[in-house]
Design a protein around this nucleic acid. Sequence first.
DNA 1: AAACTTTCAGAAACCGGTTTCCGACTCAAG
DNA 2: CTTGAGTCGGAAACCGGTTTCTGAAAGTTT
Lengths: 343, 343
Amino acid sequence: MPPRKLSETPGAVAKPATISEVALLAGVSVGTASKALNGRGSLRAETRQRVLSAAEQLGFQPNRAAVSLNSGRTYTVGMITTDTIGRFSIPLMMGAEDALGAGEMSVFLCDARDDPIREQYYLRTLLSRRVDGIIVTGRRTHARPPIGADLPIPVVYAFISSTDPNDCSVVPDEAGGARKAVEHLLATGRRRIAHITGPERHHSATVRAAAAAGRLAEAGLEPAGAPMFGEWSEAWGRQAVRMLLGAGTPFDAVFCGSDQIARGAADALRAGGRRVPGDVALVGFDNWDVMALGCQPPLTSVDMELEALGRTAADRLLAAINGEPSPGRHTRPCRLVIRESTA
Amino acid sequence: MPPRKLSETPGAVAKPATISEVALLAGVSVGTASKALNGRGSLRAETRQRVLSAAEQLGFQPNRAAVSLNSGRTYTVGMITTDTIGRFSIPLMMGAEDALGAGEMSVFLCDARDDPIREQYYLRTLLSRRVDGIIVTGRRTHARPPIGADLPIPVVYAFISSTDPNDCSVVPDEAGGARKAVEHLLATGRRRIAHITGPERHHSATVRAAAAAGRLAEAGLEPAGAPMFGEWSEAWGRQAVRMLLGAGTPFDAVFCGSDQIARGAADALRAGGRRVPGDVALVGFDNWDVMALGCQPPLTSVDMELEALGRTAADRLLAAINGEPSPGRHTRPCRLVIRESTA
DNA sequence: AAACTTTCAGAAACCGGTTTCCGACTCAAG
DNA sequence: CTTGAGTCGGAAACCGGTTTCTGAAAGTTT
């Protein structure tokens, strides 16, 4: 019995083959093997073929560490979510991962969990691993301080943005989304529109509220009461609608800052004897399928197209890596998805 | 003006420093610098200190590609989600990433999206990058064929399991979870328990249904009707409860295969004039906070403790990398979270 | 037949570290 | 003063590839 049997089936290797093994099997030098595998240099077709089939036979995959050592590139990027990976980060990450994977880049996942120490730890790790670039993302659209100063590699902020106007940030046009929501309600004949949303300290809440109010003002209309700031929860949606009903303010539509709030609102409206959309039309924000579709009736909602946003961020990062940075804040439009709650 | 100015502030480097630059600045050879930085060899304390401050001054971080080239290890693992990253993958990934990050390992994220071609592409990529190990995960607990045969590195399956009994799989004890749910209902005095769950072709649905029925049989009880297989949606939960009410089968509890189903059930019960938990107790599965807490009343639910499961999987992978594999299928208990829907 | 091109493959340097081996130096003991 | 042991730091090999440089062999021209 041989001391160490090489696997017979191609591709199923017990120990990764090196280029010297390929070269040995093909009867050439390592340098020649390298040229053959990468299509460089001038080789006889027969030689090239011999190397290629040797590589095939051994299931050869070049050691990326060796490759990056002399190319200086790792074909790797880091993705740091500053806060916990959640509902917003996922589509972002998927979009980014998709765009990067197509460019043969791999993605390091780092979850900083709202902890600045973890954030810096990950940054150092990524720099030590010589990633070609970094995407910074998070759960809130708030602008944040740059993750590091004078970094040797490009950084793109996705969803969140950097306070440094020279950094590249890709963010959804939340104001535009809110305007679209109001426009749709106006177009379907609503005139007394209330707004229920999240905490006033949240950037998203204030931006959307201001944009909604602005669009109403353009139409020469007053909002049905002041915007109601609270939490991003169903409970708050229910409570706010009860307050609205209790106050006696007339309203024929509610634009909510999130689908969860909208869903709570729908339940409270039904409990209060109001039909949706008959008496009151309802628009949410986020287009979170579980909420928007689980709602009765299914919810019209603003979609921030996070996956596309992630893809855009990744594309801009790739461009920056290739020497074409796009500094500044770039917004991407939101899309209104119309369902029964406003039909 | 000098042609290329080195940054004065430590840590803020425009181009990563190499160990030769550190050695030059410290006035020693590269080999000595390496020893000083890694605490190897015998060096005078003064020399070691000189190297350390030179490294500090230049913000030196060793190039991981170079390190892994001669250590043979990359301190990197791959995480492949065979289907789309979603609600189940996230806590898994977070747990795994947490356990791995503590061991200085970085995680490559791969989203195969239910596409076998993407899956193999990622597998090849990870092998080429010489990751030290791979975690395979997915959205369904179904057993799946091994991702590759005769791989040079350890693989751990988390949540999903491998059909090869020699592979290491870490899965939640769904049957145990279902039994806990039924036990809790029995302990709170319920005797006529119905079961509404997902599609019969889903492993989770059949396992949980069988365990629930089994536990009832042990107590000498019949279930309130046959288990109702459908979809994992609120709509199905509503529909199933309407069918139950229409059929006139008496029941005082419903154990649902998911929180979404349970939530739909809660709505339909309320609409049908049944009080929860007064007339009917309700238990869900997954303990998905948004659903369980948004439900009226908040939902008692079985938690699969996915984050802990991810951590366990990562720990087992680390052990395997260190030469202590733990082949076979390992289950982890579920936990029952009790809320108002059964109080 | 001599001189000049062209084709092709190997030797060697290099990327940025780690590690082994070896030599120079210091110091204490004989 | 010689010898042996112990300290310390440098030279060089090595990890696995890529690339440049060089030279041998073959073909072309006069």
